[in-house]
Amino acid sequence: MNALEAINLSKTYSDTDGFFLKNKKNIRAVNDISFTLKENQTLGIVGESGCGKSTLARMLVGLLEPSSGTINLQNKNIQQYQRQELGQVIQYVFQDPLSSLNPRKTIYQSLAAPLKYLHQQDNSLIKEKMLSVMGEVGLKEEFLDRYPHEFSGGQAQRIGIARALLADAKILILDEPVSALDVSIQSQVLNLLNDLKRKFNLSFIVISHDLAVVENISDEIAVMYFGDIVEHNSSKEIFQKPRHPYTELLVGSVPELNKQFADISNKNTELPDPANPPLGCSFYSRCSYGSEKCQNTKTPINSTKKLPFVSCFHPL
């Protein structure tokens, strides 16, 4: 079964110029994206800042409304869910663990919210359930009476994960789950996520700018550039044999031990203007393989959702 399905999803923000003169500009954030997330799988979405990955994440959990396209959660359209129902199906783990916790509430109060409002549990059961989940994510009972500022980043992220688990949702959207953490702590949290996925039959969408993080945790990876999915493939292959020139550039840019400088010094790194997107391939201006076709023809989108997919006329 599909845990989540996105069909031709787009989001444009409209921006009005001036107070009296309504000169509407459409800013493109996500552009005609389709993919599926199968049950018990992890889909990684990777891309650099401004590629639309956070907009996508917020649409998937219902915090933002898509401009067009459909989202199906467990084969049911997202719009048919009430707020309470939706929270029991899909949850979101925020990028900055500290700012996703109310600074004036104890951890107990923050963690009790999903049980109280999504599942109408009584107080007596709340604590029991909470302690069992806290045990799973490696939090101690004495943390319950503390306030968010008393925690380190790693602990706060575990609290965020515990809150998502308490909602009992089977689909989790993880937005940069470890980017606020030190390298030595990052994989502690990633390993925890992998264990939880197996244990509770979860499905994840992990959004990150960090290729290594996404590769580590995902079964499939989609690479986004300027609102488009430019390549979508299994995580085993995508960084080993990149097919899209942008994926190749990303892989080449990651600093690794004993690696020489990639010679990209003179290339353009600017994104196209989102209010005025290019006609053809959005990566054309930075690509060294481009042809006239790339400049003027719309690149393919993955309407059949088959893998591997690459949105390029001249794949590598």
Partner: peptide
């Protein structure tokens, strides 16, 4: 616009 308010929304609060 803080994230903890969005988190509260996702916890089903009105």
């Amino acid at each position: 616009n803080k994230e903890f308010i969005e988190a509260a929304r996702l916890s089903g609060m009105s």
